[in-house]
């Protein structure tokens, strides 16, 4: 089937029910989305499907056929950072960093819909992304900085 990831369409020969996460990681070698739990408990695998955040472990290859999949590699790069990535760097959010691809993708989707989020909204939107290192205080700060950057841009 044909899968479009970060604007590139590729033919992949996979089962309909293979989770998008494993199509990305093992077939297309896109490693930004991480495997953490496989059951939408941690959010490390978060990508955007048609612009909205989705846990790639829980959506199948068949379901994203004909839709636009964007991974963290697709929203920005070290040379051309997304505002959320800039904020994550300024606040030095990451410790081990393994959850941060998912955190950033959740935050980017959230901020695209809610450019001036309240603290309460942030707490609702971001609590489904698990961080074992406990970087939550910095995630909160970085989201506010990113929101300001995105409003100015």
């Amino acid at each position: 089937m044909r899968i479009t990831v970060n604007g590139v369409t590729t033919n992949v020969d996979v089962e309909d029910e293979m989770p998008l996460l494993w199509v990305l990681r093992d077939e297309l070698k896109v490693k930004g989305p991480k495997y953490g739990c496989g059951i939408a408990q941690c959010g490390a695998c978060t990508v955007h499907v048609d612009g909205l955040a989705v846990r790639s472990c829980s959506i199948t290859a068949k379901q994203v056929e004909g839709r636009d999949v964007t991974t963290i590699e697709g929203i920005g790069s070290p040379d051309a950072l997304h505002a959320v990535q800039e904020a994550w760097i300024e606040h030095q959010v990451a410790q081990c960093g393994y959850c941060q691809s998912g955190q950033i993708m959740s935050a980017a989707s959230f901020l695209s819909m809610h450019p001036s989020p309240s603290d309460d909204q942030i707490d609702h939107a971001m609590s489904a992304n698990l961080c074992r290192c406990g970087t939550y205080p910095r995630i909160r700060e970085a989201i506010k900085t990113a929101a300001a950057k995105m409003r100015e841009a």
């Binding site: 939408a40 989705v54 846990r55 959506i59 199948t60 909204q121 609702h124 939107a125 489904a128």
Partner: peptide
């Protein structure tokens, strides 16, 4: 979930079997 996080972030729309234990 429009206000903060869409239910569809984890609970996708699909008629496929729910086979994975503890999955959304």
């Amino acid at each position: 979930g429009v206000e903060t996080i869409f239910c569809s972030t984890c609970h996708v729309q699909s008629t496929a079997p729910n086979t994975v234990r503890h999955a959304a």
